[in-house]
Design a protein around this nucleic acid. Structure first.
Lengths: 195, 195
DNA sequence: TGGTTATCTGAACGGGTGTTCAATTCAACT
DNA sequence: AGTTGAATTGAACACCCGTTCAGATAACCA
């Protein structure tokens, strides 16, 4: 029963990535089989290999795409470090709330990447962290911020912000704008210089 | 070749839990087989079932033990909320730095718990979060703290603190006491009332 | 209308999975 | 010295894994 209506290649490809993303996020990479993904797509397992060389590449491409989009989607605005930090924090929260599944697997499935793939992903993640640390360093220099160690502060802030995906649920008690504002408030205070 | 030297039951049991903990943390629950664990213990796979009813129970007991220990190990001291918060934060950092593998699987393997087990673990985790939130609420009442939402602040602080396990390495640039002090500094500022 | 080709099926491959259990081994006790 | 029984082996069970590929299908092109 192939080729039922028009070419399926441009439909099955995206559907494969969507199904893999959802299932990996829900059950974990190792716990999901190619046959489960195929069933979700509505196809036999063999057909998936027209669209991905193997299961590992499926995971890697999802993570790489996510991190590259994250990096490309934010450019530091001009202005004082405080304004740059606000832009970074608000963007981080918004971006993560929009893509909970991608964020989830990008943090959870690092262990399941082959060494070469892991190195690429880790590099992209470090690039992202460096963006934040640069802001903190600049703010430290101007005296707007105060912290004993910019690297630790970077990790602490990113962990705090990324944690939003573990509890935020659409339609819950707090709306997205409020969540964004409250995280920005805490982040700002955490690194602020005493006035 | 059984019973080589003395009774092995009180040796194999703990070794099983240690091996499972290490392997689960390193490769993930779903990616580790009972045969791999058995090899680490130095025994055939069948023998593991003298010490655990099944693989799921192995994971569940590790997580339950960790969270129960975490809850039992800290009692709020008397005194003002600021002092209680300091005690909580410092204890959290110390406890997590001492048990990186347990912390890791307790956060990463929730998806692999059967529903009944998940409910237990989630309850324990909520109990722990409630301890922190109580402190924040009290400090908000006394005016020592200032935050718009205690629940969000609780989640943000815990995420920030727990994140220490993702980057801290023994013998690294910062020692444990410094790390503890710097996290306490950020946590304190993040919820502090403007002076 | 007939041939071409992208798309997919369905079976197969070698191997791994969690779990069970009869049989075996051997320290300890009588 | 003989018996007991805790501890373990090793084989077996039924099933699932990622991946490959010859063959079937059907939309498109000449």
């Amino acid at each position: 029963m192939a080729r039922k209506q028009g070419s399926h290649a441009d439909i099955t490809g995206p559907r494969l990535r969507e199904a893999a993303l959802r299932l990996f996020a829900r059950h974990g990479f190792a716990a999901v089989s190619m046959r489960q993904i195929a069933a979700e797509v509505g196809v036999q397992a063999g057909a998936l290999y027209l669209y991905t060389p193997d299961k590992q590449a499926l995971l890697f491409e999802l993570m790489r795409g996510h991190l590259e989009d994250l990096l490309a989607d934010w450019q530091p605005p001009g202005g004082p470090p405080l304004l740059q930090l606000e832009s970074f924090v608000r963007h981080h929260i918004r971006y993560h709330l929009d893509r909970p599944d991608l964020v989830f697997i990008a943090y959870m499935e690092l262990r399941n990447l082959e060494p070469a793939n892991f190195a690429v992903i880790e590099g992209l993640r470090r690039d992202y962290e460096t963006q934040l640390e640069s802001i903190l360093k600049r703010g430290l220099a101007t005296g707007e911020f105060d912290m004993a160690d910019t690297k630790l502060a970077t990790m602490a802030l990113i962990a705090m912000l990324t944690g939003v995906t573990t509890w935020y649920r659409e339609g819950g008690r707090l709306d997205r704008d409020t969540v964004e504002a409250l995280y920005w408030d805490m982040a700002r205070k955490a690194v602020a210089a005493a006035r």
